Structure formats: structure tokens, C-alpha cells
Simulated assay, not measured.
Amino acid sequence: MSSLAQLKTIEPSQEFYWGLSPEGFHQLSYLEWGDPRNPKVLICVHGLTRNSRDFDYLARALSKDYRVICPDVVGRGDSDYIGSTLIYNFTQYISDMVALIARIGAKEVNWLGTSMGGIVGMMMASFPKTPIKNLILNDVGMVVPSLAMNRIATYARNDVGFKSLEEARKYFQTIMPNFGIKERSQWDHIARWGTRQDPEGTFKLAYDPAIGQAFLSASSNDIHLETFWHDLKCPVLVIRGQESDLLTPEIVEKMSYLQPQMEVVEIPGAGHAPALMSSEEIEGVSAWLNKT
């Protein structure tokens, strides 16, 4: 069965819950895959300007064994857009994810985070009595180089519109060449869910432009997360795009010194960040989770 055919066999349910910031309450969306009674929970959290639909291929495959939860972080996808750069920060993201875990009623969870979602997971997993029992970091580590962040900032501030999904697909292929995506159907999926159509029929990027402004102010220096990394007690799988400029071999080596039990998988033909859409990538995640 082709990957496109597999994508159509199972559909998630969409749920909503409330988060709270200094600006007031905001509504957050998440997709739920699999049996809601399954105690084996996997939470998948996307990168800076992405959303929950990035995990459709992986979530559909893993929903046979796990209850898979894929949230839209505030300001992305179908969650509320706040429009304030002061709200788009890790303190807010952690608060909203804690509310999500309470909402789904999980006592413990597995966490898979791409880039920003990995940082949120790393922070949460380092806290005492954390509910995160296994952590998968997709192309992010204990140091985030400013050079890579500046590259991301060049497109994170974009507030462009497209006349068609075809035009949007070409845009994403231009700014995301390092995702390691090979199939046309997967690029179509990125374009379909990476945009929202406004009343005038224009396809706009599916995130609040204020996110890019907030990110720009934080991208001038390396982000150091050694304290959180050092305090991790759970098993960790690090996925690295072989050509990544955000998770370099030098950073991985330092991470391994502090957490020698961690495992590393490199994805050939990908940089920052592997899309986790191919059967090989999905099977690697599944095998590691089943082992731990």
C-alpha cells in the first residue's frame, strides 16, 4: 500500500482545551489518534512554524500501539493566535503542555519533539516527578547555534500569501529542502496543512506572524540547555539529520558525554529537521519505543 493510501485509512479526532497566559485564556487544538483508553500515550510536538499535521504519517502508523496526541502549540494550526510576541515563549508552551497532559488524563507519557517541540520536552523531562518516561528529540540538542536560528528566522517572519496550493508547495520546497521529503504526495500534505485559506481565497501560512518576531529577538545568541540536559533521568533517543546545521556532530558528542545512555540515529539525506514521514524513519521510532 502506498504512503498516500495509508494516509487515508485512519482519521484522528480533533479536540480543544483551554490555556492561560497573561493575555487571558486561549483555546488550543490537538489531534488524537488511536484508542483513547490506551494507557500507552505518545505526545508529538512540532517545530517553530509547523503544526500537528506534520505527524500524520507517523501518528497513523503508531496509533495501532499507542494513543497518539499531536497538539498545535499556541499561535499555530487551529490553536488561537495571540498576536503578542511576549506570549510566544517556552514558559507559555510548557504551561500549555502541562494543561494538555491534564486534559488527556495521562499518568505518564512518551514525548517526541521536533526542534522547538524537543526543547519543550527536554525542559519538562528534566523536572522532578515528570510524567515523561521516554524522550525522543528530533534534530535538537542541548545547544542551539545562533547561526542555524538566524537561518530559520529568515523565513519564520514571512507573512506571505499564495494563490493556490501548488504555489504553496513550491514555497515549502524552497524553504524546507532539508526535511528529507522525497515524495510529491508528502509535499502536497505539507502545503495543505501548512496553510489556511482566508475569506478572499488566499492561502496564508498557518501560524501567527508574531512568532517570527518573537523568535528573531532570541536568535542572536546560542541557546544553552545544558542544565536541563544534565538533569534528564529517562531514556533518550536523538534523531539527527545527517546534514543538520542545528544539531552538529560536536553537539551530539558533548550530549553523549553527559548522557552516555542516550541513543542516536542519523537520517541520511536530511538536515534540519527530518520529516519523519518515511517508513524507515517511522519504523525506527516505533522500534525504539517498543524496546524501552
Rank of each mutant, 00 (worst) to 15 (best):
F179A: 02
I251V: 12
C44E: 05
Y30K: 05
S217T: 13
G113S: 12
T248Q: 09
M97W: 02
W193N: 15
Q186I: 15
W187L: 04
G121A: 07
P12C: 05
D56P: 06
L62N: 08
W33D: 07
E167V: 14
E226G: 10
I223F: 05
E108K: 15
G105F: 06
N158Q: 09
D56L: 01
E266Y: 09
Y155W: 15
L216R: 12
V45E: 01
K182R: 11
T114F: 01
P274W: 00
W33G: 01
V41E: 07
L165F: 08
G161L: 05
M176D: 01
T248E: 02
E226C: 05
E32L: 12
G117V: 06
L237R: 04
E23R: 11
S220W: 11
A168T: 06
E253Q: 15
G47C: 08
E167S: 14
I82E: 07
F25W: 06
N221F: 13
Y155V: 13
S21C: 03
V120D: 01
G118F: 00
M142Y: 03
F203I: 14
T292H: 07
D54S: 06
Q197L: 03
Q259R: 15
D35T: 15
D139K: 02
W111P: 00
G180V: 05
P12D: 06
F162M: 10
T174S: 14
I152W: 03
H272L: 02
G121N: 08
A106Q: 13
N158A: 10
V264F: 07
L31H: 07
E250H: 07
E15H: 14
K107R: 10
P131G: 05
S84Y: 09
L137E: 01
H230L: 14
K204E: 08
V45Y: 04
T91P: 03
I136M: 07
S185E: 10
K233Y: 12
V252Y: 09
E167F: 05
S52L: 13
A5H: 01
S79M: 11
I190W: 01
A273R: 00
L100Y: 02
G141F: 01
A99V: 00
A214D: 05
S52Q: 08
P128I: 07
S84R: 07
G83L: 12
E11I: 04
E183N: 13
L135C: 10
F90C: 02
A148V: 03
M149K: 01
A270L: 05
L225G: 02
L276H: 04
H272G: 00
D208R: 01
I82Q: 05
I223L: 14
G271D: 01
